[in-house]
């Protein structure tokens, strides 16, 4: 187990280093930071001084190591727009994205798994067809369009829900459901196919021969095994949720991390974009690392695979 742990840890650390490299290159390509800091009126001397202060006169590879060193110590630079450390600007937004993301994640798992089981149990029927149609159509609509259509129907026309912003539970309903559509459809499809496979397994046939109630077979025996690929997929979907949150938060003016990122494009606040991407990537890598470890603990085949 220890060697498995160390192997996975090594992979995770290499991946994080790779992400810092990409972010660093993007930061260099996005233009000279000096100009955005000193302003248009600065003369060459001021620019040179600033450049030395920031260490931009040194070779690129040294700048990269300095950057990695700073990031490792939690120094992500300053936001150009807010003139405050990037970490502060981002930290304010995180709770909103966590609230939205977790709600959507919960909704997509509950709906996806239960509809998936329903479709598998009624295979070939009208219900199965309807559920599968919902899934395939749900995966074909862009998030931001679903969001806008929801605003049009429930906020503008029916006036049941607020159009945008954060507040009480009523503000959360539309963004969370919009964000949940895509992962729900994905989870639904995998639950259905995994459940169908499990219900076809020898041990399930034995349970049927034994005369066990179908309800018990499905919920007590088959579900446990059928959920393994669903759990693996859920990890991936959490990453997709964070990406989708960028779009959904923009549509509903939800003051989270994704909204901050899009605002930062408009105001050309590149340090915020780059650090935000880095932090989210590190979070997802750590999460996948943990999921891998848990899978390794549960299933020895993965450990030696």
């Amino acid at each position: 187990m220890l060697s498995f742990f160390l192997r996975r840890l090594k992979l995770a650390l290499i991946t994080i280093l790779g992400v810092t490299l990409i972010v660093f290159v993007a930061a260099r390509l996005s233009g000279d930071v000096v100009y955005s800091l000193v302003g248009d009126a600065a003369n060459t001397e001021e620019i040179d001084t600033m450049r030395r202060q920031l260490g931009l006169d040194r070779p690129v590879w040294m700048q990269y190591f300095t950057y990695v060193g700073n990031v490792a110590q939690g120094d992500f630079g300053r936001s150009i727009r807010y003139q405050r450390p990037v970490t502060d600007v981002i930290a304010e937004r995180v709770p909103f994205t966590v609230q939205l993301g977790l709600t959507a994640f919960f909704v997509s798992i509950v709906l996806g798994v239960s509809l998936g089981i329903l479709a598998a149990r009624t295979r070939g029927s009208f219900v199965d067809g309807a559920v599968r149609t919902i899934a395939v159509v749900g995966q074909s609509m862009p998030h931001f369009w679903i969001g806008m259509m929801a605003i049009l129907v429930f906020a503008v026309t029916l006036r049941w829900l607020p159009t945008s912003g954060a507040g009480g539970l009523s503000h959360l309903v539309m963004p969370a459901l919009t964000l949940a559509t895509f992962p729900m459809a994905a989870i639904l499809r995998i639950t259905r196919s995994s459940m169908l496979e499990t219900l076809d397994a020898e041990y399930v046939k034995f349970l049927r021969v034994k005369g066990l109630a179908e309800r018990l077979i499905v919920w007590k025996h088959a579900l446990r095994n059928a959920l393994i690929p669903v759990i693996a997929l859920s990890g991936i979907q959490l990453g997709n949720l964070l990406g989708g949150a960028v779009i959904v938060e923009t549509v509903f003016s939800w003051p989270g991390l994704g909204n901050l990122m899009v605002e930062s494009i408009v105001s050309r606040d590149y340090p915020v974009i780059q650090s935000g991407v880095l932090m989210i990537a590190v979070f997802l890598i750590s999460l996948n690392f943990l999921v891998d470890l848990i899978f390794g603990l549960i299933d020895p085949r993965i450990r030696y695979g």
Partner: peptide, 11 residues
């Protein structure tokens, strides 16, 4: 794979 699609495009 560790960077969500939309964030990668923003980068």
């Amino acid at each position: 794979m560790s960077i969500p699609t939309i964030l990668l495009t923003i980068l």
